[in-house]
Write a protein that binds this DNA or RNA. Structure first.
Lengths: 334, 334
DNA sequence: TTGTACGCGTTATCAG
DNA sequence: CTGATAACGCGTACAA
């Protein structure tokens, strides 16, 4: 290659990297030689020589894909806007042996629903910068679960409901697992706090424990609606459960929202097709990916006091599945 | 590192690569030194030295995520089963500059909804093996659109429908773009062929052109239901349109499937929450990813006559949105 | 069985 | 402004 242009490879390197110290005529000669040969620098060699690529990695567990897909989309768009490349590494439970390759090549890595040690990545392989998104560690990029849960509960109160049941997500089993991974707990607390502030105390049976699965949602709904004094509203900590609640209620002859109001949490595009359209708390999943990438980019640029953004705002999206309670609440308990 | 074990790096290399020609005692010494230092071979240098990693790349356009997500899932699972690593490269319209890095590192690459030239990848950067999944080129891994479309149409005929409308997908605009990318055309043809074989000729207005978007589905539904002799069944070439058709029909006071049957195409998990549950043609999207990976793995192992698998079977999934037509069809045209 | 020398393709350093 | 030389960290081939 260098022969073709009759210069040293050094000069070729300088030309390709846009260094200013090349005479215009030489540069032209090199450029046309490059053109002629279709030559392209070998990125692997470049990496070995110590250059870091404008590259970010995103490592995601293959579970809950509908969730991570949105995060990936946001991350990918942000990366493109910032002129970074983004590779997505999908991992199962086993650690991916060549994770380290990409981690070395990248300027930073975001771990979604996981963290590096959790994936068996040796510290030595870590690139300069890391973020975990909704991960087990404390310094994780998060969403305001508490605020969203409060907003949803408040919404139901404002509609006039007093008998509001809750279907929880999967609460942490082990103490370690709970470290930070407290979505379900925060959503539960938002519900409980808001009711308490409103001076309401509800029967224990109004709190059902689910695990985010549709099955658990259906079970909870059947249990709640079989109660002597059933709730007029059910707030489920996840959309999948909320949709299952709607369907179970409909199967039991209840109209939603006329007879029963249902509110979800997530606003996954996945469930946009449901009718009645689900009133739910939207998590900014795309923004989660965006912010992760932005934060990584900031770190890469050397902004030392690059603080993690505060929990991202969740917003209540009012659609059709929640309405005022039926006027004659006591019809079932004469 | 070599110093620690008091051997040459050569021996370290041999130990790490499991070569048999090392004395057991030496191997032990190296192993414990590796353990102690936490040493790991640098994958970049290894790649530069000419080693190909057990790595496959999957390049996907960031558009239609619900679709590609399923393909990715299948590919990722298959890769794990085959003990390959898989990197996913999400690209926008612009070509990703570092695509070539990964392409060089991989043993093969699958392009979903795209092909290498289409992404501006120079041929020199291509790894040994490529597959395109549902891409523009002719040698692309595909799904049996024709068969699925025929099955759906036949199903409606067997239910007793004779007034069956069709909402097409986005038909190719330019001649080049149509090369292979003929999903929409094949689905249309399956519908037309089947009706023809049944000896039915339908009014031109029963063929509506959509573009896979919900909006186009709604438009088509409104147009069809406003006809003097509206169809009793609507077959939409995509789930998103089918769902839009259902909703539009319901908004116009039609019951689905009592008054109107609706059949979709895709079976995206995205729309599983819809009620009535959508009768639709399932595309094996996960299998598409799996087969792509398997094919790549076969090629990588040197199976020369590795033929591309035939189009993957689609299957009609009968759920609740299609039923026999209402008995008195002529009520609207006295 | 183990060690030496060289090459992979690039960039940094420093000399010319 | 340009070119020679030395890394980068590993694998391969061959020699000891």
């Amino acid at each position: 290659m260098a022969q073709v242009a009759r210069v040293s490879k050094m000069t070729v390197s300088n030309v390709l990297n846009g260094k200013p110290n090349v005479k215009a005529s030489t540069r032209q000669r090199v450029l046309s030689a490059v053109e002629a040969t279709g030559y392209r620098a070998n990125p692997v060699a470049r990496a070995l020589a110590g250059q870091r690529h404008r590259l970010l990695s995103l490592v995601a567990r293959r579970s809950n894909l509908p969730y991570v897909t949105e995060v990936i989309r946001g991350a990918s768009e942000a990366a493109e806007a910032l002129e970074y490349d983004l590779v997505v590494l999908m991992v199962g439970q086993r650690q991916s042996s060549d994770l380290s390759l990409f981690l070395r090549l990248s300027q930073g890595a975001a771990f979604v629903h996981a963290d590096a040690p959790g994936l068996g990545v040796p510290p030595g392989d870590l690139p300069l910068h890391c973020v975990t998104v909704d991960g087990p560690t404390h310094d994780s990029l998060r969403v305001d679960n508490l605020g969203g849960s409060r907003a949803a509960t408040r919404h139901l109160l404002e509609l006039g409901h007093t008998r509001i049941a809750f279907v929880s997500g999967l609460l942490a089993l082990s103490p370690e697992a709970s470290l930070g991974r407290s979505d379900a707990a925060e959503r539960l607390r938002g519900y409980q706090d808001t009711l308490e502030e409103a001076g309401l105390t509800l029967p224990e049976a109004y709190l059902q424990h689910g695990d985010y699965s549709p099955e658990s949602g259906e079970r909870a709904a059947r249990a709640l609606l079989a109660l002597p004094e059933p709730p007029t509203a059910i707030f489920a900590a996840g959309d999948a459960m909320a949709v299952a609640v709607i369907h179970a209620a409909q199967d039991l002859g209840r109209r939603v929202p006329t007879d029963l109001s249902v509110v979800g949490f997530d606003d996954l595009p996945f469930f946009r097709g449901v009718r009645p359209a689900l009133t739910t708390v939207a998590q900014p999943l795309g923004s989660l990916g965006e912010e992760a990438v932005r934060h990584l980019a900031r770190l890469a640029q050397g902004e030392t006091p690059a603080a993690l953004p505060p929990p991202l705002a969740t917003t209540l999206v009012v659609r059709d599945s929640a309405a005022p309670p039926p006027p004659h609440q006591s019809i079932q308990t004469p």
